[in-house]
């Protein structure tokens, strides 16, 4: 049954991808890419990767759709028609070659869920065995992400921060003073005149932010963590900005604060690592943070997840406001 369902979802993914490529209306391409992300989230969920599914749904279908729509407001909605020679032969050859290469590679792949697959025999058993002993939290994914592979996650946070800085630089190029001394938005764009979405949205926002906090601090026990929580909270605040106008959202969280959140979150992660070194351990070895090594690990993971959440929220909201500022 689950095989039928995954095949159905995977074929829908291919259909959606082709529709995105073929669509000349950029607006429908953006909407289709949101659908693509939702389908992808379902696929991840079928593969038992609930943490990844949550991230994909929040970032892919939620925030990035809004960001793409923001970008779309700066461009025409139709793809520019240009005369292009259709290189049918070259395309066919390329696609066939890639198809053959991937098919050939897939012969060597172990069956899905095969317990003897290399990926399940490498470090995964060690993580599964040692997590209860060393860290004592139920969600092994969080243990791997936060502690065992803390370096990787640190790198990811700095990738997010760097991407955010890059977008801010690109969007404020040639317009000095966009950040942090931004001029007041001239047009107050909001949905205040649309009574029903306005009221319903206002009711939902607190619950979205509450759910984000739950995902943030429940990451040790269930699917979730800083990345997902950051995206969910950012989505809630973006909804607020859409409902009440961008100016109202900027009054609550000015650009200065957002940039501070992003940098502060990333720094918090780094400082936890440095604190471990100062206390006599290795970089990001949280065992030294408390008298009991297991408690130390838990404190360390909660702190770095907080850093991740702050950094992701700050970065996503900064990017959103940078796009929104260009629209006016």
């Amino acid at each position: 049954m689950i095989v039928v369902f995954s095949l159905f979802l995977l074929s829908l993914l291919v259909v959606t991808a082709i529709a995105i490529v073929r669509s000349e209306n950029l607006f429908s391409a953006v909407m289709l890419s949101g659908i693509f992300s939702l389908l992808m989230a379902l696929n991840f969920f079928i593969l038992d990767a609930a943490d990844v599914a949550l991230t994909e749904a929040a970032v892919g279908a939620g925030v990035s759709t809004v960001l793409l729509l923001g970008a779309l407001a700066l461009t025409p909605t139709e793809e520019r028609r240009r005369k292009r020679e259709r290189k049918v032969a070259a395309t066919l050859v390329t696609v066939t070659m890639i198809f053959l290469a991937i098919s050939y590679a897939s012969f060597d792949q172990p069956r899905i869920g095969d317990p003897d697959a290399p990926v399940h025999r490498h470090v995964a058993p060690w993580y599964l065995e040692q997590t209860p002993e060393l860290i004592d939290i139920p969600n092994v994914v969080t243990a791997v992400l936060g502690s065992f592979r803390g370096y990787d996650t640190l790198g990811e946070v700095y990738v997010v921060l760097t991407a955010g800085i890059g977008v801010l630089f690109l969007l404020s190029a040639g317009r000095p003073g966009l950040l942090p001394h931004r001029r007041e938005p001239r047009i107050e764009s909001s949905l205040k005149s649309h009574l029903i979405p306005h009221v319903v949205g206002r009711v939902l926002i607190p619950f979205i932010v509450l759910f984000g906090l739950y995902v943030q601090f429940h990451g040790e026990y269930g699917p979730g963590g800083g990345f997902q929580a950051g995206a969910i909270i950012a989505a809630g605040i973006i909804l607020f900005a859409l409902l009440e106008g961008e100016g109202a959202a900027l009054k609550v969280l000015p650009p200065r604060v957002l940039v501070g959140l992003a940098i502060g979150g990333a720094l918090l992660y780094l400082l936890v690592g440095v604190a471990c070194m100062l206390l006599g351990g290795n970089f990001l070895d949280y065992s030294v943070l408390a008298a009991d090594p297991v408690t130390g690990q838990q404190i360390g993971i909660i702190l770095i997840e907080l850093g991740v959440g702050l950094a992701v929220t700050g970065t996503l909201l900064s990017i959103f406001h940078a796009f929104a500022a260009r629209e006016q």
Binding site: H194, I196, P197, V200, G201, V203, L204
Partner: peptide
């Protein structure tokens, strides 16, 4: 039940 009809209204509007 809250979001479905709202989305429908937004779409139709």
């Amino acid at each position: 039940l809250i979001t479905g009809p709202t989305a429908t209204y937004a779409l139709g509007h």
